[in-house]
Design a protein around this nucleic acid. Structure first.
Ligand SMILES: [Mn+2]
Ligand SMILES: [Mn+2]
Ligand SMILES: [Mn+2]
Ligand SMILES: [Mn+2]
Lengths: 217, 217
DNA sequence: AAAAATTTTTAGACTCGTCTAAATTTTTAT
DNA sequence: ATAAAAATTTAGACGAGTCTAAAAATTTTT
């Protein structure tokens, strides 16, 4: 079987590949996994030996089919556990990620299958991220950043790009929860901050920094 | 913090101490943890340094107060997760232990607290074992082995001493579930096997081997 | 096209938890 | 009370995963 650590590397490679063009670099992996480049190099050699990644020295890295299958399995487990923690145990969306980081490594096909059923086969996690299918397919979603919505449009908050507890708590505080309706009233030409009306009620200002990390549709 | 491995040693020492008199031996720990005596010796030295056990070379081992507190925390988590797996996800009592062996190491006070609440503060796990309190107290239970019940008495199945899937599946097959009523009709003088009536319905024969591992009252 | 800067890999070391083989201590048997 | 047997500890090694420092390759700058 595969170690905890290997699973984390595969997952991280998947995420970095999804957000960039081309191969994933050693340095970006080191930063993301909070290790040093030397450690990453070592691990890449091992993962390549196990045929989980395509790897040519100095040329960056890409998941093989098998590697991607495994990465998606881990991501599926992570997101299903996040749903459980939020829906059933009442944790906030700012709290679930850390625990899911551990729970995602519990290895039992049966467990994740039964948990999925218990939760009613959810399609999205508490952050609006889609849950990969049992077969290992990542659903495609077409969201826009709030920062790119034109004045006058009304959209719905569907997810976040930034997952830090600080950001999520900030959203909680301002009432920008998943599913809430947002009418874009104005965009400041100078700092690109956005003036929005939420759920046809209160109006508030959203910085461009925040707007760029809010996914809507 | 403490590693998975350390938690497992502490838990194992607790169990062995509960079932024997006096100090726990290196060899019994080696057998229980499926390692070699040499590895156990090494780990005992480390645990003693951390003040989690009382340890004198060649003289066996005993948990300190802090060590017992930690052991009971792990056992509490294990049993609460077993309840979740059985009650909420529908796993059989023969399946839950293995998964709980992994889940018990997820470290979050909050998680086990919320899970406990979600389950309605259960007192016993699916095998009838009592769940230690959040403060780290192991409830005392006074059960008798079915093999020691006198003819004519009616008792209730409250737990098991043997936790192997094979044994539990055997009980499932014969209908000897937790909570069922058992009337002892006869005890065979030769092999100590027991003739019992279950729930005032069917009669069946229980070997002494099985009767010794069934807790009743 | 060289030189400088950056990125990546290699070399060598460390911790954790494990092992086998050998040494030591304790227990049991004679 | 010795000798033999059993239990336990120590010595030395290993794999996984990490680190720092140094070497090598690649990219950027001049
Ligand atoms: Mn997450
Ligand atoms: Mn998420
Ligand atoms: Mn168990
Ligand atoms: Mn149990």
């Amino acid at each position: 079987m595969h170690s905890f650590t290997e699973e984390n590397y595969l997952k991280t490679i998947y995420y970095l590949a999804a957000r960039q063009e081309g191969e994933v670099t050693t340095n970006s992996l080191a930063e993301m996994t909070a290790t040093k480049a030397a450690s990453v190099s070592d691990m890449l050699r091992k993962l390549a030996e196990k045929q989980l990644i395509h790897y040519k020295k100095y040329q960056g890295v890409r998941l093989t089919e098998e590697g991607e299958r495994l990465a998606l399995k881990v991501i599926r487990r992570h997101r299903i556990w996040e749903v459980f923690l939020a829906e059933k145990l009442g944790f906030g969306w700012d709290e679930v990620h850390e625990m899911a980081e551990e729970l995602e490594h519990i290895r039992s096909e049966d467990l994740v299958q039964k948990l999925d059923a218990f939760l009613g086969y959810p399609q999205f996690d508490p952050h609006g991220d889609p849950i990969p299918s049992p077969a290992g397919q990542m659903p495609t979603v077409e969201y826009t950043k709030l920062s790119e919505v034109t004045i006058g449009e009304e959209v719905q908050v569907m997810g976040v790009l930034e997952h830090s507890p600080e950001f999520l708590q900030h959203l909680d505080k301002t009432g920008l929860n998943l599913g809430c309706r947002v009418l874009v009233q104005d965009v400041n030409a100078f700092d690109k901050s956005v003036s929005v009306q939420i759920n046809h009620e209160k109006t508030l200002f959203v910085s461009n920094e925040v707007a760029r990390n809010l996914l809507v549709n």
